[in-house]
Each structure stands twice: as structure tokens, then as C-alpha cells.
Amino acid sequence: MINKFRPDVMESLDVVWSGASIAIGGFGSSGRPDALLNALCDLDRRDLHVIVNNVGHDFTGVGRLVMEGRVRRVTASFPILQEFYDAYFAGKIELELIPQGTLAERLRAGGSGIAAFFTPSGAGTMLADGSFPLSYRDHEVATRLSAKETREINGRPHVLEQGIIADFGFAKAQKADPKGNLRFHLSARNFNPVAAMSGRTTFAEVEQLVEAGDIGPDDVHLAGVFVDHVVMTAAPEPANLSGTMEKSVL
């Protein structure tokens, strides 16, 4: 019998090693797997490579990992947290900045056996020509993102982007059944399906555990074959949305 429910988050997550790469779902705090991220901190894992769209706007979630100095590299499109940038310019964290659509597709491709793909996004820009600062040392550029292969296809320049296979995938969903089939809620879906696909081993934290069959086959958003372990999310903290939501910039 397949039963992917794991009663203890910490015990379940113990297989994640320091130094691992982790693809993480969520868009800001929406759909972010906070119980898994908190457990990672509580297990004292370090030297992590996190692949995630946003670092977040405060010291929860990925922000907590960053603030506790547990992150070696961030692959992201929109990091935003000031303390993250402070760590980046101080040479404590590398930033692999990539367009948001490229990030989503690299995760999807990695989980789908597509080694690489050509996209027009970013062609000819600093994110493709080898000039973007990957890391700093004492506020001077130390290393730069590698130049990406560019090819003209149908008369337009395209950039070769590699699929991402992460050591682990972290997803947050609304519901899971014992097979690991997931159902998401509204825009909290965002990067979660592709983060789950990208992980060699994937954890999903969910608000509800349901019986097999409770999510109809046509209603499964992500098939359980992409998910290895299912844990319960922590009870949500009462949120003052208008007060805490991230300020966006141009």
C-alpha cells in the first residue's frame, strides 16, 4: 500500500543534507512551504542552494534561511529582501538571477527529462552575456554568471537554458491523498507544481490530508508520482494582509 503521509516533519526531512539544492514553491508568502523551511532551520542545515522565485519580504520562509546564514546560493528572479542583498554584496551569498518564466521552465524541464531549451527571454541582456555579478567580495564583483549560448532561430536570438534537477523539491498544496496526489488553491499554486517536479526527492506540505479517491482523477493538479513525502503544514498565523504584504518595485 502506498502511503506517503509522514506524521513528523523533522524526522521526514532529516534526509536533507547540508549543501543540498532545493527547489521551493511559492510566490512571496503565497503558497510557500513554511513548515518545511522552518524544519530545515530547526535541523540546522547549512550551505544550501535554494531555487525559488522570491526570497520574501521578511524573516519567515526563505527569508529565515537567509537571515540565519544557511544559504550559499540563490537562484531567483525577484529576491527583493534587503538583508538578502546586503549578504550578496558582502560576498556571503551568490545570486543566479534569471527571468521568471525561464526559472519556471527550467524547473519544469529538469523534472521532465529536458536537458535544456532555447528561449528568447533575456537574449542579448546582462543575464545572458556573462556580465551579471554572481558574487561579490568586499563589495567588488568576484565572479560573474557564465555567458549563455545564444543561437538565432527563426530570425531571432535565443538563449540556451539548462533544466534544473534539484536534490529536493519543496511544495505547498491545499490537499493531498495518501498517493501524494496534490490539489492547490487559487494563485497559491504558482511555482509549486514545477518545484515538485524538479526535485529528485520531493516533500509536499498540505493543509488537508484526504482519503484516496477524495480528489477525483480529473481534479488532481499534480500527480502523486512527483511527490515522495507528505506532511501537514503548521496552523496559519493570523495575517494582516494589507499590513504585511510585500511592496513591489519596478
Partner: peptide, 28 residues
């Protein structure tokens, strides 16, 4: 406001009748 329904600036939004939700890869 619903924390599971925000725009790309992370602000709370609503849906029009007939709206659709997709994942990030499909969105792009």
C-alpha cells in the same frame, strides 16, 4: 483578502467570473 489569491506584486486581488488559474510554467 485571501492569502492564496494575490497579484504579481503580492497584493490581494479578486477574480472575475470565468477566471482561470494556472501554474507558473503555464503562466509563462
Amino acid at each position: 483578502e485571501d492569502p492564496d489569491l494575490t497579484d504579481a506584486g503580492k497584493q490581494p486581488v479578486s477574480l472575475k467570473v470565468g477566471a482561470a488559474i494556472v501554474d507558473s510554467a503555464t503562466s509563462f
